[in-house]
Simulated scan of single mutants.
Amino acid sequence: MQHSFRNRKRRQLKAEINVVPYIDVMLVLLIIFMVTAPLMNLGVDIELPKSSASAIQNDKEPVVVSVDKDGAFFLTLGASAREAVDEETLVNKVSAFVRQNPQVPVMIGGDERVDYGRIYAVMVMLQQAGAPKVGLMSQPTQPDAKR
């Protein structure tokens, strides 16, 4: 009977998972990824243009479209005087001026009490006129002396 007891002890199966090979594989993969990651170039090589110009300074007089509190349009083309215009005249004049001066800045100055939809309509009209970029004008805030 003792003989059969020894055989049972020797023949019992282990219920453990041998994780040593998995750790080895994981470490090898980690080393491979660490070595190859710096070699992978996922970006695009481009050369940005160099410019020494300041952000807001322009040599040309801008086209300024003003919208007063009642929603009326006023147009200033370069150094010319400000004139009241309707929507069709605004598009025609700005279109002709932008065709002659393609790099001219186009700005919108709207009263803070005017409806945002009116300012948006001016932006759409300037897009139809062919203005490549449109900027919005604002007044700088005054520091409060009481604080």
Rank of each mutant, 00 (worst) to 15 (best):
E61C: 00
V91N: 01
T76G: 03
V25D: 04
F33R: 02
E16H: 08
N101T: 08
G110T: 08
E112I: 09
L75Q: 05
K9A: 11
I32G: 01
M40V: 13
Y22T: 12
G43C: 05
A15D: 08
A55R: 09
Q127N: 15
V20S: 08
S54D: 09
P102I: 09
L48P: 02
M26W: 09
K60N: 14
A84I: 04
D144H: 10
Q139D: 10
A131R: 00
K133D: 12
L13I: 09
V64R: 03
M137G: 10
F97Q: 06
G130N: 02
G71F: 03
M1Y: 09
D70L: 12
V94G: 03
G43V: 07
V122G: 00
P143F: 11
V124W: 01
A15V: 10
R99G: 06
L90R: 01
A131Y: 01
D70Q: 14
P21T: 03
E47F: 03
K69Y: 13
K146R: 15
R99C: 04
K146F: 12
S66P: 00
L30Q: 05
V44D: 09
N41T: 14
I56Q: 14
I17L: 14
F73D: 00
M26S: 13
I23R: 03
T141M: 12
L27E: 02
L39G: 07
S95T: 05
Q128P: 02
L29V: 15
I32W: 02
V122A: 06
Q2L: 14
L48N: 07
L126F: 01
A145Q: 10
A55F: 11
H3D: 15
V85P: 01
A131P: 01
V67K: 04
I32S: 01
K146A: 15
P105A: 03
E87G: 10
A79Q: 10
S95V: 04
D144P: 02
N58T: 15
L136W: 05
L90T: 03
M137F: 08
L30E: 02
V44T: 13
P38S: 02
S51L: 05
G71A: 07
E16K: 10
Q57L: 11
N101P: 02
D111G: 06
Y22G: 07
T141D: 09
V67I: 15
L77N: 02
A81S: 12
K50Q: 15
E61W: 07
F5W: 09
N7W: 07
V20Q: 12
G135Y: 13
N7R: 14
K133P: 02
E16Q: 11
Q128L: 09
E61Q: 11
S54P: 05
D115H: 06
T76N: 07
Q127K: 12
A81R: 08
A129R: 00
L13C: 05
G117T: 08
H3N: 14
K60F: 08
S80T: 12
Y120C: 00
G135S: 15
Q100F: 06
P49F: 03
P38L: 04
S80F: 06
K50S: 14
E83W: 03
A121W: 03
Y22V: 12
F33G: 06
N92R: 11
G130P: 05
K93Y: 01
F97Y: 13
G117Q: 06
S138G: 07
E87W: 05
S138E: 10
P140E: 13
D24H: 11
N101C: 04
M107I: 14
G78Q: 03
